[in-house]
């Protein structure tokens, strides 16, 4: 990953960008997001398979935008997130320097977002074996078993909203769960409040998920919340033939429609 460090140094010392958002080693050998604004600090940047944070989260926040032009270290799921955020008008096209990193830990430079679009279409990301297995298990269950499974999982929820806080797609200034007039989602972390929250969250992410799995990763209670998004992502692909984060076309799944959408349940 020396290439990445060199590139970051070059960008910072030439003044092309004011900050590089990347990964560094944190306490206890864990990886954490890093904001590098001096060329001499670029040496702490790294990339490996443990880098799971979705850095697209920081690209549109006031706190980071204020620093100036940004470069971002972008594994495939960050690249997808950047495309989704662009189609949702959260990022301006070509407004940042994207330092793509492949799963093989190679650096790819993108001259513009159009090139990202081409690249992500040529390099599909598969699900982790562990997640694939869990989805198969869930699909093999009867509906009542699935209900019980999720009720058990949600009963652990403490409503810390880490899943929301870590997701770049949760870009609303004010989330539905924060409204109290009307109160859509009860604030308490009881059965109903937890269920409503997770159903609402998954619905609001349907068709917009970059499948990074960071929500499940962030959960302090180890609830596999990401599986809800992963599963609906697969279903949406079956129903509409599209996946989020593969296009720069401004056509979000649920804000567009086709007259020939095929369903089998409306009488």
């Amino acid at each position: 990953m020396n290439k990445l460090k060199e590139k970051a140094k070059e960008l910072l010392s030439s003044g092309a960008v004011q900050v590089v958002v990347g990964y560094e080693e944190g306490t206890g050998g864990k990886i954490r997001p890093a904001f590098v604004s001096r060329p001499e600090d670029a040496d702490k940047l790294l990339y490996n398979a443990d880098c799971h944070h979705n850095l697209a989260l920081y690209l549109y926040k006031h706190e980071t935008k204020r620093i100036g032009k940004m470069a971002v270290v972008a594994p495939p799921f960050v690249l997808r997130s950047i495309l989704i955020l662009t189609t949702e008008f959260q990022l301006e096209e070509d407004s940042l320097v994207v330092l793509g990193v492949t799963p093989e830990e190679e650096l790819i430079e993108f001259a513009n977002f159009k090139e990202i679009e081409t690249w992500v279409n040529q390099h599909p990301i598969g699900m982790k074996e562990k997640d694939r297995e869990m989805l198969n298990r869930l699909n093999a269950m009867s509906r009542d078993e699935r209900w019980q499974f999720w009720q058990n999982e949600f009963s652990k929820c403490i409503k810390c909203f880490a899943c929301r806080g870590t997701c770049p797609m949760c870009s609303c200034f004010r989330c539905t769960v924060d409204y109290n007039a009307p109160q859509w989602i009860s604030v308490g972390s009881h059965q109903l409040g937890n269920f409503d929250w997770h159903l609402m969250r998954a619905m609001h992410l349907a068709g917009r998920c970059s499948v990074c799995g960071q929500c499940g990763e962030a959960c302090p209670m180890d609830i596999p919340v990401h599986l809800l998004s992963f599963q609906i992502n697969e279903d949406i692909f079956k129903m509409f033939g599209s996946r989020a984060g593969l296009t720069l076309k401004k056509e979000s799944l649920l804000s567009t429609w086709k007259s020939n959408d095929v369903e089998n349940f409306i009488r």
Binding site: L138, R143, D144, E145, R146, W147, Q148, F149, W150, Q151, F195, H198, L199, A202, M203, A206, G207, L228, Q231, I232, D235, I236, M239, L253, L254, S255, T256, W257, K258, S259, D261, E263, F265, I266
Partner: peptide, 24 residues
């Protein structure tokens, strides 16, 4: 013009989501 088309997509996704979470 298109409110019901938007709704149709939403219900397609919502119904599937309910199935996935075990709701009848």
């Amino acid at each position: 013009t298109s409110g019901n088309f938007h709704a149709r997509r939403r219900w397609m996704v919502f119904r599937q989501m309910l199935e996935n979470m075990g709701v009848e």
